[in-house]
């Protein structure tokens, strides 16, 4: 199962142009953290590298916080 710490680490590894707070608030939408669409692509690339799970485009739209990503991967088992 993917932990919130692993999601945060994936964000740190995603080469984001914005300075992220530490720890990253888990309920704050990525756009409020200053991430743009390409940053979010990068986060999901890191998550796929980590889990081997491809997240469909339609699902990404609803996954805009660490909490929601955590819940999504938890449901995937």
């Amino acid at each position: 199962m993917l932990s919130k710490a692993q999601i945060e680490e994936a964000m740190q590894n995603a080469g984001l142009a914005v300075e992220l707070p530490s720890p990253i608030p888990t309920h704050t939408p990525f756009t409020d953290l200053g991430l743009d669409s390409l940053d979010i692509y990068n986060v999901f690339v890191e998550l796929e590298v980590l889990t081997g799970i491809q997240v469909p485009d339609n699902d990404v739209e609803g996954l805009q916080t660490i909490d929601s990503i955590h819940d999504y991967f938890a449901a995937k088992g």
Binding site: L38, N42, V45
Partner: peptide, 9 residues
């Protein structure tokens, strides 16, 4: 997104 993923992965 898919083209980006393809290149990155």
């Amino acid at each position: 997104r898919q083209v980006f993923n393809f290149a990155a992965l």
